[in-house]
């Protein structure tokens, strides 16, 4: 059952990306182009996403298990360390260069687009696995 719900969530997520315009790299770059003809649409994507999921997280805070009895697994890390900052900056640089982040990369891949990006993204993720494990 939880495989099915994961599948449904992924499908819904992908449809949301398509509807929102997040799967169009040109639109994402137009959002990031503050000095040019700025398209603020993607602020509303984040706003809409946060508005709905915040309700779920507020509810999730009060329960330890899901409707299926699975444990609610929330990130426990609290420290704002160099990995968090450096990783986010590198991610942001790549996001700006192509206008593509991981979800849209997969939605584009399924349309046969930006294949070089998706391939390199998987390679970058594999490269991360070679790093020594976090010590803290």
């Amino acid at each position: 059952m939880m495989i099915l719900t994961a599948f449904g969530s992924g499908l819904l997520f992908g449809l949301g990306l398509l509807l929102a315009g997040m799967a169009d790299p040109a639109k994402v770059q137009a959002f990031l182009d503050l000095a040019g003809a700025w398209d603020p649409s993607l602020m509303l994507v984040m706003g809409g996403g946060v508005a709905v999921s915040a309700l779920a997280y507020a509810r999730g805070r009060r329960q330890a298990r899901t409707a299926f009895g699975a444990p609610l697994q929330l990130p426990q890390g609290r420290s704002i360390d160099r990995r968090l900052i450096a990783g986010s900056l590198l991610f942001g640089i790549g996001w700006g260069l192509a206008g593509i982040c991981p979800g849209p990369a997969l939605v584009l891949l399924a349309q046969g687009k930006a294949l070089w990006f998706a391939g390199a993204m998987f390679a970058g993720m594999a490269l991360f696995e070679l790093l020594p494990a976090r010590t803290s």
Binding site: R83, L84, I85, A86, G87, S88, L89, L90, F91, G92, I93, G94, W95, L97, A98, I100, C101, P102, A105, A114, W116, F117, A118, G119, A120, M121, F122, A123, G124, M125, A126, L127, F128, E129, L131
Partner: peptide
């Protein structure tokens, strides 16, 4: 695209 993909893949996992 390759450069950006590498940065997005590695950076998002590191961060």
């Amino acid at each position: 695209l390759v450069a950006a993909g590498l940065l997005v893949g590695f950076g998002s996992r590191l961060g």
